[in-house]
């Protein structure tokens, strides 16, 4: 075998190695925790299969001709240079495939936008560099707090060993009940931020002066982590989002505790300034 084919083989082996490593591990979508996240996941898997099929057809043909139609094996060049039929076929087929891909996506887009009749509405406000949450409506109405990175600075500087949830932990989690439709309104205090929790399949920019919204319904209790995903200055990498999903009764308990705590401190409604 020539050194070139050894190289090519090595290359494909590495590619195959790290794809398989990734698919079977933490390096893929986090497990979907909501209907939208599930639909997104399914559509991505379908898209990957379609890409793989096209890839095999196109590069199968290309590598076949690279192997067989080379001068070094004595292949003589043909002289054709167009074929209307073939060209129409390979314009039409991709078009049909794309339409097939767009169809389910359209349904999901419409579903994502349906933020009506939420059980609970929470406002998430991006600050440089933390999140503020206000429970506007539903069970827990009136609760309001800030949520800041809680990883100690010593860990960032490498003076302490890094904990399990390094950079993905906050002092106050956003708490929501399981199975309820949660609507999150996003806005920002200073610059753009974006509120993202991958497990729920939601991401929405937070824009100063304007509100936007998103919704999710968590399938099961647990703690789900995300981060700010719109560059917002120096500490953009240090404003994670942690959503804690609780059973209804636990949630009620949490609300009661929060209310008690805030009654003690004078409640200042508008967190801003």
């Amino acid at each position: 075998m020539s050194s070139k084919s050894v190289m090519a083989l090595l290359g494909s082996a590495i590619l195959a190695f790290y794809s398989s490593m990734a698919f079977s591990s933490k390096y893929f979508h986090p497990e979907p925790q909501s209907v939208i996240a599930q639909e997104t996941y399914d559509q991505h898997i379908t898209a990957l299969w379609i890409c793989l099929a096209i890839f095999i057809v196109v590069f199968g043909a290309m590598f076949y001709s690279i192997l067989k139609h080379r001068k070094s094996v004595g292949h003589k060049a043909a002289n054709f240079h167009h074929s209307t039929v073939v060209e129409i076929i390979w314009t039409a087929i991709p078009l049909l495939i794309l339409i097939a891909m767009a169809f389910p996506a359209t349904r999901t887009v419409v579903a994502m936008k349906d933020t009506s009749q939420p059980d609970i509405t929470i406002k998430a406000t991006g600050y440089q560099w933390m999140w503020g949450y206000d429970y506007l409506q539903g069970e827990g109405e009136g609760i309001s707090f800030f949520s800041k990175l809680s990883t100690p600075v010593a860990q960032l500087e490498g003076k302490e060993t890094k904990g399990e949830n390094y950079l993905l932990e906050v002092d106050n989690n956003v708490v929501v009940p399981v199975g309820k439709k949660i609507r999150v309104i996003t806005t920002a205090n200073d610059v753009l931020h974006a509120w993202w929790v991958p497990a729920f399949g939601v991401k929405q920019d937070a824009i100063p002066g304007f509100i936007r919204d998103l919704w999710f319904t968590a399938n099961k209790p647990g703690i789900f982590r995300g981060q700010c995903v719109e560059l917002c200055g120096k500490d953009h990498g240090y404003m994670p989002i942690v959503v804690e999903v609780m059973e209804a009764d636990k949630y009620a308990q949490w609300v009661a505790e929060k209310k008690k705590a805030s009654a003690a401190v004078m409640n200042t409604a508008a967190v801003g300034n």
């Binding site: 509405t121 406000t125 806005t187 205090n189 200073d190 100063p208 509100i211 508008a270 801003g272 300034n273």
Partner: peptide, 9 residues
């Protein structure tokens, strides 16, 4: 739903 925000004051 009604919401209110203050920026920088």
């Amino acid at each position: 739903e009604l919401d209110a925000n203050v920026r920088g004051m």
